[in-house]
Write a protein that binds this DNA or RNA. Structure first.
Lengths: 341, 341
DNA sequence: CTGAAAGCGCTAACAT
DNA sequence: ATGTTAGCGCTTTCAG
C-alpha cells in the first residue's frame, strides 16, 4: 500500500543503498538527490519506522514515568519534554505510577520492554539500583526533580530553596515554623536541610514535632497539616514542599477553620495555578518548569546520540527556584508570638 | 545479545513456525508447549516487538492528543486510559497541543507517522474532516469530552449538565446568570443549550451580554469574567463550563475584589482539586473521570481488534455529570436582586 | 500439529 | 559516490 524504497528504486534507477543514504543524510550526488527527492514527493513516500527499527534497534521513542499525571507539576514537565522530543522526531510514552512504588517498577519494566531509546524518570523515591537493574544498560536514564548519583538529572538547588523559603519566614518574625516535606526522597530531605540551615542561622532550635515527613501526596499533606494544627503550641507558619502538598495543607486549614495569613502563615512550592487561584494569593517558590523540561529533553537526546554508554557522561543541571510573593505570610512580632503560644 | 526464536529452535529442535504459534496462542502439543516454555525461561526470551511490528504492521501503541497536559482534567483522563491500555500491552504516546489548533494538527500527523494503532483525541474544536484526512483509514480514532458524528466517543450529557447547573442557580433565586463556555466546541455549546433550557423553563429571557464564548483556557475565562463583572447590570451568578475556566473566573474575581458567594454566586465544572482547595468550596458538576477514561480505553482497544475498519461500529458512550455541592452559591430573593441591579 | 521457506522494509558492510 | 548483498527477528502461507 504505502510506497517503499524499492518503488523509489524503480522510479529513479538508483540502488537501495543510495536511497537509504539519502534518507539518512549521507553523501549523494546533487542530481541523484533531486531524482530521489522527486520520487519521494511523487510517491508520497515515508520511511517505515518499523523496518528501520528492526535493523537499527532504535524506536525513536522515549519513555517517561511520573508519580501522578493529575499533578500539573508533572503535566507541565511532560509538556515541555514532549515538545522538545517531538521536534527531534522522538515520541514520548508516558506511564503514571499512581504514587505507588510497585507501579513505578512495573512501568519502567513495561517501557523497557517497549524498547524505548531512553527513559525520563520523576522517581517516587525508590532506590536507584532496583530500577537500573530493570533497564538494559544501553538505554540511557535521566531523572527529573530528584537527583540520583551517577545518573544525569535536572533539579533545582533544593537546599537553597528550602533555605530561602524558611528565611523569608524568619525574616518576618516567625520562630515556630512547621515543614511538610517528602521523607523518602532526597528532594524533600534537601528542602528540609535548607529549612534547618535557615533556622540555625537565626539560632532557632529545631523541634521534631514541627517537621513532618509525608509521601508527597495531597492526602499526606492534609493529614500532616492537621497534625500541625492540633499541636498544643502551634507553629505560626508552615512551609509546604511541593505543589500537591500546598493543596492538602490548604484544604486542611479550610476544613479546620483556619485562615491564612491571619491564623497561620504559609509558604508553598511551585507556581501552577493553585497559588494564584487562592485568595489571598499563596507565596511560593517557583520552579522554572519550561527550562527544566527543555533541559531534560536535551540531555536525554544527547545521551541517546551516543550509542556507547561509555560516551555518556552524567551531568546534573541545577536550576534555581524563585520566590514569588503572595499574601500568605504575615509579619509578626517574635516575642508577642512567644507569649501567645 | 537478547535471545531470539532461533535460539529457542536450537534448544527445542522445533521449527520457527511452531514457536511463533506458541507465542501467539496457537495450537501446540502440550509436550512441545512445555519445551518451548522452558527454553523461554532459560533464555530469558522476550518477543522482539520491532520485528513483530515489521511483519504485522502493528506497533501496539496508541496516540493521544490533548489540548493541554497542564490541566488535571486531561491528566486525569490520560492516567486512566494509560492504565487500561498498559494492561492490554499497549503503550500510550501523548502529545500536547498547547491549546493550539495548528499544533493539534501537527500532533495528529506526527502520531500517525509514528504508526500508532489507534488515536484518542480530546479535540480543541477543529473540524472533523480536516483531521480524518491526516490519518490512514485503517487507524481507528475516538474522541473524548467532545462528540464527533460518525466517530466513537466518550462524553457526558452536556445539555443535561448545563441544565442542571443552571437550574441549581434559578432554584436559588438567580435570574441574571452569566455563562462562560467554549464557543468553538460542541461540548461548550451544548452546555450553553442546557443553560438556555433552564432559563426558558423559568421564563427568563436570555441576554447576549451574559453569554460569553471563550477558547476554554484560564486566560480566556479570566477576561470573560472581567467582562461580566464590569457590566452595568452584573449577573448575580456565573456558570463556568470547564476546569480551567473555573480557575480563570475565580482569579478574575479575586483580582477585581469580588468574593463569592456574597458578591456573586458561582458554579463550575469538574471536581479536581480546585473546588476543594477553594474556600468557600466551589459547587461544581463532577464528571466521572475514571469511568470515562476506562471507557475510552476499552473502545479504542475494541476498535483496534478489528483490523477491517468496516467491522468497527461507531458508538457513543454518554455519562452523566453529578452536581457536587459546595458553598459558592447563595440563595437570593429574585425581586430584591432585581431592585438592586 | 509441525516444518520449510519467503519476505516485511530497511540498513550497513563490502566491493566497485 | 554508488551498487550488491546479507541480514534484523518475526509471522505466515503452503506442504506435509
Amino acid at each position: 500500500m504505502s510506497a517503499t524504497i524499492k518503488d523509489i528504486r524503480k522510479k529513479t534507477g538508483l540502488s537501495l543503498a543510495t536511497i537509504s543514504k539519502y534518507l539518512n543524510g549521507g553523501n549523494v550526488l546533487p542530481e541523484n538527490r533531486e531524482k530521489i527527492g522527486g520520487a519521494i514527493k511523487e510517491l508520497h513516500y515515508h520511511v517505515n519506522d518499523m523496518a528501520r527499527s528492526l535493523v537499527t534497534s532504535q524506536t525513536r521513542s522515549v519513555g517517561m514515568v511520573v508519580p501522578s499525571m493529575v499533578s500539573p507539576f508533572h503535566g507541565s514537565l511532560i509538556r515541555y519534554i514532549e515538545s522538545e522530543l517531538k521536534q527531534a522526531g522522538y515520541s514520548l510514552m508516558v506511564c503514571d505510577s499512581m504514587d505507588d512504588a510497585e507501579q513505578e517498577r512495573d512501568n519502567i519494566e513495561f517501557l523497557s520492554r517497549k524498547n524505548v531509546d531512553g527513559l525520563v524518570l520523576i522517581p517516587t523515591g525508590r532506590k536507584i539500583q532496583d530500577i537500573l537493574d530493570l533497564v538494559p544498560g544501553r538505554v540511557p536514564i535521566i531523572t527529573l526533580d530528584v537527583k540520583w548519583s551517577g545518573i544525569s538529572g535536572v533539579t533545582i538547588d533544593n537546599v537553597r530553596a528550602g533555605y530561602e523559603a524558611t528565611s523569608y519566614l524568619t525574616e518576618r518574625g516567625h520562630r515556630r515554623i512547621g515543614i511538610i516535606y517528602i521523607g523518602k526522597q532526597c528532594t524533600g530531605r534537601q528542602r528540609l536541610k535548607g529549612y534547618c540551615k535557615a533556622l540555625a542561622k537565626r539560632g532557632i532550635q529545631r523541634e521534631e514535632v514541627l517537621e513532618i515527613a509525608t509521601d508527597g501526596t495531597v492526602d499526606g499533606a492534609y493529614e500532616a497539616m492537621n497534625q500541625l494544627l492540633s499541636l498544643d503550641r502551634r507553629p505560626t507558619a508552615v512551609f509546604t514542599c511541593n505543589h500537591d502538598m500546598n493543596i492538602g495543607a490548604v484544604m486542611a486549614m479550610n476544613d479546620a477553620g483556619f485562615r491564612y495569613p491571619t491564623d497561620l502563615s504559609i509558604i508553598g512550592f511551585d507556581d501552577l495555578l493553585i497559588p494564584s487561584i487562592l485568595n489571598p494569593r499563596l507565596t511560593v517558590l517557583e520552579q522554572p518548569m519550561e527550562e527544566m523540561g527543555n533541559a531534560a529533553a536535551r540531555i536525554i537526546l544527547e545521551h541517546m546520540r551516543h550509542t556507547d554508554p561509555a560516551d555518556r557522561k552524567a551531568e546534573q543541571h541545577v536550576y534555581r527556584a524563585i520566590l514569588h510573593e503572595g499574601k500568605s505570610v504575615e509579619r509578626i512580632d517574635p516575642e508577642e508570638a512567644e507569649k501567645n503560644s
